[in-house]
Design a protein around this nucleic acid. Structure first.
Lengths: 254, 254
DNA sequence: CGCGAATTTGAGCCGAATCAAGCGTTGTGG
DNA sequence: CCACAACGCTTGATTCGGCTCAAATTCGCG
């Protein structure tokens, strides 16, 4: 069903932020009706992307911020030697493009992993609006802050945690984010490839595969291709936040 | 000379942003005089900190953003098990506390590695000012963006690069930042311990020490305790931006 | 000068990368 | 509808880089 396709005619839909199920994530609280109207006027909903479609690509001139509405987006960079680094995966309600404001160019690419819809915020207009709507500044800084916190978490995980712990971090973190969006946190489908997850977590795909096997053996999760079922939230979270000195790890490894 | 000390009487200095050598880093361009005045009115320069003094600590209530004026600041987090993760080092002109805006609490601690002076921006007042001074929003988002880019860089380095490459990344990056501040990029003193650098770069202190030795042997740098002299910028940068498939690495290792 | 902390050095081991098949799934064309 | 090709994923065997543990050395500081 990757057929949203070429006969999708309306190129730009004017968005109703009011009725959007994501408004609690996208919008600051306590906006009055006129403010929402103003905000809506600078938000455009672009036609959905199919798998592998790009919201923007590394190096392009910066003009807009984007918010994911549905689907899942892979953020990645490719260096001079052609090596890819996956910076993260964005779910509905998450903001894309902040790191481009300073440089004037998108520093990473944002690629749909599935059919993905999203909203565009022309940055020049957004800036004007910040001066009008109190709380909008705080809101965007909040989202920037969340991104920084997430980066610190992954930095720590790759820096200090074992392979299995990193994989546990990934699943618990994804589980939490999905639950916040109203989806099941205990069973979900991975829109991204094993390759991309492994890259994000700083390991080889083979190693990720072996770690999956281990978590299955330890009765923490079940895996069926892209489908993940978390069987033991508690111990998975324990593993995710874990250091070597804690005895439970020994138990599991033994 | 760690004696800025207790008899430093003036508790809060009103700052002159105009005359500050960092203004090009701290302030948006093209501010008119009245705008600078308004900005100065919300900026306080607090008494300098000695080594090990904290600008803020993880978990404290968020109230202000801070800008480093001189010295060097270590950003770090400590988890439930007491493990420390060094998130980075802040040099003059750099902003601290952005990640606290969303959560209302400082997510990390900011500790002076040396005698360090800094400015405080009361966040509530800052927000008001954003609505008045066009360009201030862009400026802070720019700084947030820079922080995100830096996080992606370190994520990639720890994820994909070898030990020696990571150390080269650290020195070249530090060199560049110091040069921008007007210091020498080819010779400098490290204000932070080996332990902290190793932690930041996702390795053990022993491993960092061995890597230093290797870079010295390869004639890329000279090290004298805290003093670092970069002898071969070009090849150090080559190593920093490097992957295994590139032949020059083989040359150096062989 | 002497103590404690930080750093370096050494030896041995282990976890994860690499290399190489094998398997299963998906998509395509006959 | 089935055969086949292509790709993504898993599994196995081997290697090696970096960690661990332990000790020596140097540095910073009273």
């Amino acid at each position: 069903m990757t057929k949203v396709s070429s006969d999708f005619k309306v190129s730009v839909l004017q968005t109703s932020c009011r009725n959007c199920s994501l408004s609690s994530l996208c919008l600051p609280k306590d906006l009055v009706s006129t403010e929402i109207k103003e905000l809506e006027s600078i938000v455009s909903q672009l036609p959905p992307l199919n798998k592998h479609g790009h919201i923007f690509s590394q190096g392009e001139n910066f003009s807009s911020l984007y918010v994911v509405r549905s689907g899942c987006v892979k953020k990645y960079q490719v260096d001079a030697e052609g090596n890819e680094q996956v910076n993260g995966f964005s779910l509905p309600g998450e903001l894309l493009g902040i790191d481009a404001i300073g440089t004037g160019r998108y520093m990473s690419s944002a690629e749909a992993l599935d059919t993905t819809s999203y909203c565009q915020l022309k940055y020049s207009k957004f800036e004007e609006l910040c001066e009008k709507i109190p709380g909008l500044i705080k809101h965007i800084l909040k989202m920037a802050g969340q991104e920084l916190v997430a980066e610190h978490d992954i930095h720590k995980a790759i820096s200090q945690k074992s392979i299995d712990e990193r994989v546990a971090v990934f699943f618990t973190s994804l589980s939490t984010r999905l639950r916040i969006l109203g989806y099941s946190g205990s069973e979900f489908n991975l829109p991204m490839s094993r390759h991309d997850i492994a890259n994000f977590l700083g390991m080889q795909p083979e190693t990720f595969s072996r770690s999956l096997k281990k978590l299955i053996t330890d009765n923490l999760i079940d895996v069926n291709l892209k489908n993940i079922r978390i069987k033991d939230q508690d111990n998975l979270r324990l593993l995710a936040g874990h250091c070597e000195t804690c005895p439970s790890n020994k138990v599991m490894n033994g």
